[in-house]
Amino acid sequence: MTAAVMGRPGSTGLRVLRAEWTKLTSVRSNVWIALGTVAVAAGTAYGLGLFVRPGDGRSGSWVVTSGFVLAQLGFLVLGVLVGTSEHTTGTARTTYTTVPRRLPVLAAQVQVTLLAALTTASVALGASYLATGGVRAVDAPALDLSVPGAARALLGFVLASAAVALLGVGLGALLRHPASALVAGVLLVLVGDHLLAMNPGRTTDTIRAFLPSSGARLLQDDAALAGLDAVTRGPQLGVWGGGVVLLVWVVVLLAAAAYRLSRHDVR
């Protein structure tokens, strides 16, 4: 037997990263989820764009990024699958005997998911722009980057998408069961906010402000943010506050997942 070993033996952060990228891209369903997410984002933006009229107070950036409401579920699923598939398929036995220090694997999973989500979100944004182009030509508001906050909203679409994917990784790696991670994720990024919104008040508005769904504020231009801040009885989060709330959730969940991974047995 010959050992075709190159360079210093053993695992390094970069090598584990390369391995996780191979793992992410070698499972066909992950590629389909990414493509599906792009299609859902563009399709939703196209559909909603049909109904927007100049008098609605919706800006052009709102139309282009409106696919987020459904597309975020695609990002969530992608992240949850990265976080749970090790444990649901038994791959964990192989992965964590190969890299027994374990945490480099989670770090690599976060990085590859971030890269995949940023790419997918950028493509989805481009597709949404093209899909809503025809509609804009009629009488819907055009995408105008000179509108205050419009460029930030486009960037926000990409950032919030990536953050939701990482939220999925954190929930998946923490809970290790896709069903429970997905239910928790959907509650946190979508349903929880809508349920609380049915009963507005100081308490519910405060809770809503500190749910990960606050991250959707990143997709609003200045005028839309002002509108949101005018009706809420909770705290004023400012331009980036919603994004910070989402980021904190991501960091806390990933830290909890890292704790469980490093301290507990892998089955």
Binding site: A3, V5, R15, A19, T22, T94
Partner: peptide
């Protein structure tokens, strides 16, 4: 059953090999 059912044998081994810089 320590392999992702959706991954090919080659890719499974490749991902393992990559963690240690094996060609």
């Amino acid at each position: 059953r320590s392999v992702h059912p959706g991954r090919t044998a080659y890719k499974h081994l490749l991902a393992m090999a990559q963690t240690h810089g094996i060609g």
